[in-house]
Design a protein around this nucleic acid. Sequence first.
DNA 1: AAATTAATTGACAGTTTTGCTCAGGTATGT
DNA 2: ACATACCTGAGCAAAACTGTCAATTAATTT
Lengths: 143, 143
Amino acid sequence: MRMSTKAQYAVRAMVNLNLHSGGSPVTLRDISLRESISLTYLEQLFVKLRRGNIVKSVRGPGGGYLLARPAREIQVDEIIDSVEESLVPVSCMDQKNGCVCDDQCVTHNVWHGLAERIRQFLASITLADLTEEAQRKLTQSNS
Amino acid sequence: MRMSTKAQYAVRAMVNLNLHSGGSPVTLRDISLRESISLTYLEQLFVKLRRGNIVKSVRGPGGGYLLARPAREIQVDEIIDSVEESLVPVSCMDQKNGCVCDDQCVTHNVWHGLAERIRQFLASITLADLTEEAQRKLTQSNS
DNA sequence: AAATTAATTGACAGTTTTGCTCAGGTATGT
DNA sequence: ACATACCTGAGCAAAACTGTCAATTAATTT
């Protein structure tokens, strides 16, 4: 039961982006340096984040990435969904229409309930929450 | 974010064991046949379940496995712990003493909170719950 | 128009984890 | 003694994970 580093990277990168963007585009190179994540790997992640309507890109000099929506409206579960990290604990429940084994599987309800809790929790946290927290930690360590 | 099949098998096997044991030992061979899980794989799982004080073994002819404690006192999270399936979503939090990055990691609280929810949910379900549910489903389909 | 910057994309490779088998062993009841 | 059934460790194939490399496209500045 591990959250992949891909998902962890994506969340970290998004917080960093929001933290250092004053409304102007942030380059992946900057995020790469600050978060010690390989630039090319970040590129992969941001393609997916863009498709997931989490960020939008600005090309050319002075370009980079911006939030596609206000940070308050971006939930952590959306970020993870975008990088194609399933939040459902068992594979038979990948399709939204539920799995066939509803009746037979004794353990079905366990995993279904678990999936709900995970989703619920990660949806309750927004990028704004995390950014504010990061801001607090930053000012603390600078004092 | 997947629950490994190992953990899924372990839970299924435990329900099946409890369902078909009338106080007498149940052989892995029986569970293997009923749940379509490889016998040798089950053997591996049950070594760990025994070490985790979930089951106890009876050797020799007529032997097999028994619950080490009443089903009401066996929680699903204990079963999963026994087969060495980490319930903590990120590796830096494997040790109980917490990870070093408490202060730096912005995302630390997210994963920590998630881990708590997962643990809390799986601890709220006992083997007795699952067995009763299985019993219900069984009698329903037989009517 | 040319050069520069930076996003975009696809292929692919090394490593780790997972899921499972095989080949033995050991203990216990009859 | 012998059958039963637990016990153990080695090993292996497939998948997933974590990236890298190479090449392209698009926008901006000069």
